[in-house]
Write a protein that binds this DNA or RNA. Structure first.
Lengths: 345, 345
DNA sequence: TTGAAAGCGCTAACAA
DNA sequence: TTGTTAGCGCTTTCAA
């Protein structure tokens, strides 16, 4: 049933040349290795004729690389990560790399297991959104000389290429925007995740509110996504306890989404009457009524920077390179929800 | 810098046994091959001690398989596909397979290229959402004995395992529901994609409307996503031309999304006054005001069926199996938007 | 019950 | 300018 594909050796035999010759021509090293024009042409023609495809596994075994890049994120089906992944896939494809997506679930053990397997599969590089507790595994990769680029989050106490969002600035901008629109009692709703990107956002909010002489109102919800109804109750209580609130800043887009739903359930006018802004954009914010303002992460730029670093590191694998920490700014997208309200103010 | 990992041979030398022995023990074939208990134990202990990880590439080269499954969809960042992919990833992980996600962009050439590369990489199976024009490539894989399971769409004139949605029934159910709620002038908005899943949905709508003695109103929009503004205009004209419409059935979730936005722009009361239902659910439908009814695809079940077939085919690679076409039913999720309206009727 | 050795298909150092 | 050949690390047949 399975017709065996011809191997290099088969080809060499048919053409009556050595496998070396075929290999060199195949890899475009014909000229460099001073193989005659005619021979090159003859080989190339034959390769084309039989539409020869080399066995990539054999090549990997020999060369030690695989032209595969791993993209490890918390959840590949998360909108933000999947969009970034999509662009990474495209850039990789153009450079003849493939991308293995995988979900860490923010779990260190699972992540370490994945890393082990991929290492044994000779993947050429890792782009990782690091869960807590994988510092050693990452250092190990670095020791090994495997390119690693961190994304979205840092690991403290380790020198490593990273592409990050300037969370503090973003949070500050969003808060400032609300203040400029005349909001005085701005709530910040976040999750109790002890990770620097969330802490920076909180810090940005607090500093800005304080600077403006306003009071801070902070609600911290449990991270556990299974306890959505708990969160709903907490939001409801929070709103009830602070009737003076005129606006809400959600620290991440899935909070905004569930938050909007909750607000709507509490009182269908609430969403229109409160100033609302979200950290992280969502494609549904512009279809909502009112449309929801957001501080958007620069998805395309992030993907490009990740791949720029990755391809560079792969190429210059044996040179010592300066570690780069790329801090990108997002963009404040002002829609209806964060504009001055006349109904309530 | 790179400390070389120990190979099977190294281990054999250290233990003063043959590589065969180590290999057998490593693969749990010790007993079967009648290696003595003590030896097995000695080898196992050493393997554990040095935390030996075999080189998976070498193994692949030798065995001809890779424990990698490819999941090819139109766009990996599409909500529906990424959710299915996420579950497939999980199931695979439990069976010690990894998943290579890749986007076809519904383009035959790109898809064929991907298939070629993956074939040379010895992937163990393909789950494919087939774009038009890849029938031959798929048949080729089948010839090769590589497991292929189609998802979401069929390829006409080819016997192949597939997991599909029962589009006709789904469309019928959604239409019936609107009729039961008292809607009389139901529009069907679709895209001009000549693929059977879309045609079945259209057919389901038409048959049901006809059966109920109602008039059909069909708007077909161009597929090209770049021409969103065109679509908006067409929707607007369509609504204007048929003031008697009391409800709209969108044939796919991204149509619903852009459609809702358009409706809202035309007249902010329109969304509340029309009956609305969407083929395909979206997580944002339940946050919208009003919440949007939908015929939801059974994401988890689909992923499970895909993997059931895939793992089965991989395992029984050399047996002739009956082709299975799994047709799944979705679920009608009734929310506010499709309930009887009192404001307009 | 264990070991020797032949490959899987490719690359590249070395020889001719 | 081209060819010979030794591996890459593993599995598995055959021999001992």
């Amino acid at each position: 049933m399975k017709k065996k594909r011809p191997s290099l050796r088969d080809i060499a035999e048919v053409l009556n040349v050595s496998t070396t010759t075929v290999s060199f021509v195949l890899n475009g090293k014909g000229e460099e290795k001073k193989i005659s024009k005619q021979l090159i042409e003859r080989v190339e023609n034959y390769l084309k004729e039989i539409d020869y495809k080399p066995n990539l596994i054999a090549r990997s075994l020999r060369t030690g690389n695989s032209h595969i890049i791993v993209f490890m994120v918390e959840d590949v089906s998360n909108h933000f990560f999947s969009k970034v992944g999509r662009i990474i896939e495209d850039i990789s494809y153009k450079h003849d790399y493939r991308v293995l997506f995988c979900s860490t679930e923010n779990d260190a053990k699972r992540t370490r297991e994945h890393i082990e397997v991929f290492k044994e599969r000779q993947v050429d590089g890792f782009i990782i959104v690091p869960p807590p507790g994988i510092k050693e595994a990452v250092e190990d990769l670095q020791q090994n000389g495997t390119p690693v680029v961190l994304f979205d989050r840092k690991i403290e106490g380790i020198e490593i290429d990273s592409v990050l969002l300037n969370n503090y600035e973003g949070s500050r901008n969003a808060t400032l925007h609300l203040i400029e629109q005349g909001f005085k009692n701005i709530a910040f709703i976040t999750i109790d995740l002890n990770q620097n990107q969330m802490l920076d956002r909180l810090a940005g909010y607090r500093a800005t509110v304080k600077e403006a002489g306003l009071t801070e109102y902070i609600l911290t919800l449990p991270y556990d996504p299974d306890r959505a109804s708990d969160s709903r109750k907490k939001i409801q209580e929070f709103i009830a306890a602070h009737p003076q609130l005129d606006s809400i800043f959600f620290a991440t887009n899935y909070l905004s989404q569930s938050g909007l739903k909750t607000l709507h359930q509490i009182d269908s006018n609430l969403v229109s009457n409160l100033g609302i802004i979200s950290f992280d954009d969502s494609y549904f914010f512009e279809m909502y009524a009112p449309t929801i303002s957001a501080y958007a992460q620069p998805i395309e730029l992030m993907a490009k920077e990740l791949m720029r670093l990755m391809l560079d590191r792969i190429q210059k694998k044996n040179e010592a390179l300066n570690v780069e920490e790329v801090n990108l700014d997002g963009e404040l997208i002002i829609r209806e929800s964060s504009l001055k309200k006349y109904t309530r103010l």
